[in-house]
Amino acid sequence: MISFFILYWIFLKLDFLILVNTIKNANFAWFLIALMFFYTSIFLKSIRWKLLLKDAGIDIRLKDASLIFYLSMFVNSIIPAKIGDIYRSYLLKQQTGDPISLSISTVFLERIFDLSTVLPLLLIFAYISFERDIPFEIIITLKYGILIIFALILLTLIFLKINRYFVKNTDFKVVGNILSNFEKGIRTLKIHSIPKLLLLSIISWITEGFTIYAIFFALGLNYGLIFPIFTDLSGSLLTAVPFTPSGLGVVEYALIFILNLKNISITESSAIVVLYRLISYFSIVFFGTIVNFWYEFSLKKYLK
């Protein structure tokens, strides 16, 4: 409901005929290139997740890790509150038998790596895009983002320090087992894996950033290389907002706000957003539905 209200408010003053014509005149080849960049970034993030699972002692093929990762994105696109992250661990348990509380720790670490790479990239790209005159709203957002990173790392360290004492003294054995598995997943992260994981995070996010860059070209717009990537990363970061599925409504509003900072018309901004969300939202819902049915059918056949 919140998503549709925001979307309605965004597109209320639009001339839909002009918007439709703008989209119809887009270069389809560049749109396909944008699609390719987006799905390449998903594959790279699947590789990163597989490496995190390997450190946690969970053995799974890259093909299966990629499939489960994509299905979690599908669930996050239709249900709010990041339920897809829990669904990912549930699907993994069906495959490997490993506890959900163990694999969910790899998703938690994944989020820390995401924030630790996206926010510095956004800061660098914002500095270049706006030639030192970074808008106040973006500076505030980045400051809060950096504070969140430090808070997450600090809370993680505190958790690792006190969890064993809590588990040892708690009467709730189920809770104790869950927390023990979660701690185990975090502690098994190997130091020598961190540079590789950081590099994969940077490459995957920049690759995803090229999605809007290609969409700009599809619409005949040229605003350089850095600003489209900055815009894309800003939108991608907001998909983490748990109140709506895949940040629906919030992402669209933020993207139009950012594009407006470069005086891009409301029609062109809306066309960029529509094409971007066709890739980053509707394609996941469409293909995810098909993949989900296929996966459930294959799993039932395997269990028999």
Rank of each mutant, 00 (worst) to 15 (best):
S116I: 03
L115Q: 10
F150Y: 14
I153H: 10
K168N: 13
I139E: 11
I178Q: 12
K143T: 14
I203Y: 00
I206E: 05
L219H: 11
K143G: 14
I194E: 07
T117F: 00
L179D: 09
I146M: 12
N169H: 15
T141D: 05
E208P: 00
Y144P: 00
L155C: 14
F125T: 12
L155R: 02
I186A: 10
I139M: 12
P195D: 06
F136H: 14
Y165M: 04
L119C: 01
L160Q: 12
E110R: 06
Y127K: 13
E110W: 06
A151P: 03
I153E: 06
I149T: 07
F172W: 13
N181V: 03
N163C: 09
V118L: 13
V167S: 13
L179M: 13
I134F: 06
L219P: 11
T117R: 01
D114W: 08
L122K: 09
K168G: 02
K184V: 01
L189T: 11
F125G: 06
T156W: 00
K168L: 13
L179C: 07
L221W: 03
K190V: 03
F217I: 04
I158F: 13
L221M: 15
K173M: 05
K143V: 14
L198Y: 10
I215F: 07
I202R: 07
I178Y: 13
H192C: 01
L155S: 15
I212A: 05
L119H: 00
I212C: 02
F166A: 10
K168A: 13
F159S: 11
T156S: 15
L200D: 02
N222L: 01
A151H: 01
Y127N: 12
A214C: 08
Y213K: 12
R164W: 03
I186C: 09
G145F: 03
L123G: 09
S201H: 08
T207A: 13
L155I: 12
N163F: 06
I149E: 08
F159H: 08
L189I: 08
L115K: 07
H192I: 10
I140N: 05
L142A: 05
Y223F: 15
F172C: 04
L155V: 09
I146F: 15
L119G: 01
E183P: 04
E183Q: 15
L122H: 06
G209V: 04
S193R: 10
Y223N: 10
I140E: 11
F136A: 08
T141W: 02
A218R: 09
G176I: 07
D171V: 01
E131M: 09
L154G: 05
L115C: 01
D114Q: 08
V175Q: 09
E131W: 02
L152Q: 12
L219C: 10
I112N: 07
E183L: 00
F217S: 14
L147P: 01
A218H: 07
F136Q: 14
F166C: 00
I153R: 11
